[in-house]
Nucleic acid binder design. Structure first.
Lengths: 134, 134
DNA sequence: CAGCATCCTTCCTGATACTG
DNA sequence: CAGTATCAGGAAGGATGCTG
């Protein structure tokens, strides 16, 4: 993914050595990877189904992320030698081993996102009130 | 952080709405944030202690990430009005609420990083063997 | 259908020098 | 001590057009 001799990559290695967290995040930290994995938890999907279900992703990025997930052995790519072509993506056992972890992450996010939104709203309210006065 | 009108930011919002996972990752997905949080799980630390304990991080980045963590209410910044100045960072209750999740993520990473390294090694061995033959 | 190639923009990161 | 300011480089992400 990264040039191995860039200081970027070197620091990344130190981090991975540092603790497992960084390693895990290097796998699922991509912008769209959680969405992809999340959808595949419901079962295998075709390329086009993935594309349509993830609003806003570009083809280029989708393919890139899928290839990375494939390289990391989280996702399996199955090509059917047909015309028209058909390609399906499904989680590998390693991918499935993430299920409870993804659930944990999602739960935390869902729970605390509410708080964050409430905080944001009250903040904007305060700003609005100040603007009213000023 | 991002310009709100960029398509980048819009897609980010959709993602956050998509599932809690993306929200959580937007908080801890930064390159150095896991390291920072991880260290603060051992107790509060001064700026310089953090800097020294995280090898390779630049001051600028450390400050930026700390500010983001502060804005997200994961970390509290305590300034002591002394000379020389002293600033300590500690986890907020919200930060502490991440503990088991971070542990989960770290455990997964530690466990499966071994596999990945082994895979990588056997791959390189194969390549080397092929090079020997060829 | 499933994707690759190309070009472009934005963002992130790091190094260096300076300050209250 | 605990930062800030500025600049540069590289990586990630996006838009579009084309192909087996």
């Amino acid at each position: 993914m990264r040039k191995e001799n860039s200081s970027n990559a070197i620091n990344g290695k130190q981090l991975r050595g540092d603790c497992g967290t960084a390693y895990t995040l290097s796998l699922i930290g991509g912008r769209w990877k959680p969405s992809i994995l999340w959808r595949l938890l419901d079962g295998k999907l075709r390329y086009n189904e993935l594309k349509k279900s993830i609003t806003g992703i570009s083809e280029r990025v989708l393919v890139l992320q899928l290839r990375e997930l494939e390289n990391d052995h989280l996702v399996k790519r199955i090509v059917y030698p047909e015309v028209p072509p058909r390609v399906e993506y499904e989680l590998t056992p390693l991918g499935w081993s993430m299920e409870s972890m993804l659930q944990h992450i999602s739960d935390w996010g869902t729970m605390h996102r509410e708080d964050a939104i409430a905080r944001q709203a009250s903040k904007e309210k305060t700003v609005a009130a100040m603007a009213d006065k000023g």
